[in-house]
Design a protein around this nucleic acid. Structure first.
Lengths: 128, 128
DNA sequence: ATTACTGTATATATACCATATATACAGTTA
DNA sequence: TAACTGTATATATGGTATATATACAGTAAT
């Protein structure tokens, strides 16, 4: 499994691992039931500490995206396409709600907020 | 000045202070040149540590929203309506861009992202 | 001039997070 | 049996958030 980890950004390694594996699972790139690399294997490959991987996997387990079996490893949890889409939407909403609320409190109108989002999505169009 | 601080939420006190004062400034509720309560006064009123207020004010100063004068206090920086709006938009865009990028990586389409945002804004309509 | 306020600086402490190295136990597989 | 797996724990470093305390320098009121 390919993860792109860097210690040049502000984002903690744990967070990078969680974010990237979560995306692979929710985008359907990691199929249900698939096994993840062992914590020791991933730590070795990425030259990071085992406990860093362990904590990341625990977070994903807490989110219900993976589950562990002692002696066997971690596995991607069975989720329907619909469940995955619902999870992704729910997460986005939870993340955006307080930010949008703050923007409104800062004096931006709904129209202006929509405009910022449109520009942001348009910017991403060139990168996808 | 009225701030609503709580230690019941996950949000650190510093962050709450910064967020609430920033909103007041960007929304034009705190007028340019206005003085902020002294760090000791605000700490007393909110029953928190002086250094917590100091760190929050320093963050706002670093963002260019306020400036300090030794012996006199902290003051709201002069900003035009346009500059305030630009700042708010820029901040929102900086916050949203990585989150939208993550949502795309998780398999959500632009249409679905727009839908989540529309629902979120609609939800907020009832609270404003 | 003195007192009371202001911000700035520093020290120490606690709790938590992120990350690291190390060790050990229990379960699984080759 | 050896090599792998996850689980648990200890210790350490560095950073953040928050607290109490002290002291200095600047400002304003009495």
């Amino acid at each position: 499994m390919i993860l792109h980890l860097t210690d040049l950004s502000d984002e903690p390694l744990q967070s990078q691992i969680v974010r990237q594996i979560r995306a692979k699972i929710l985008a359907g790139e990691l199929t249900a039931g698939a096994d993840l690399p062992s914590i020791r294997k991933l730590a070795r490959e990425q030259h990071i500490s085992v406990i860093t991987v362990q904590r990341a996997y625990e977070t994903l387990e807490h989110e219900g995206l993976i589950h562990s079996r002692r002696g066997k490893g971690f596995f991607v949890t069975e989720l329907s396409d619909e469940a995955r889409k619902t999870l992704a939407k729910k997460r986005l909403q939870e993340i955006l709600e307080p930010k949008i609320r703050a923007a409104l409190a800062e004096g931006l109108s709904k129209r202006e907020i929509n405009e910022v989002i449109r520009e942001t999505l348009k910017g991403d169009l060139n990168n996808f």
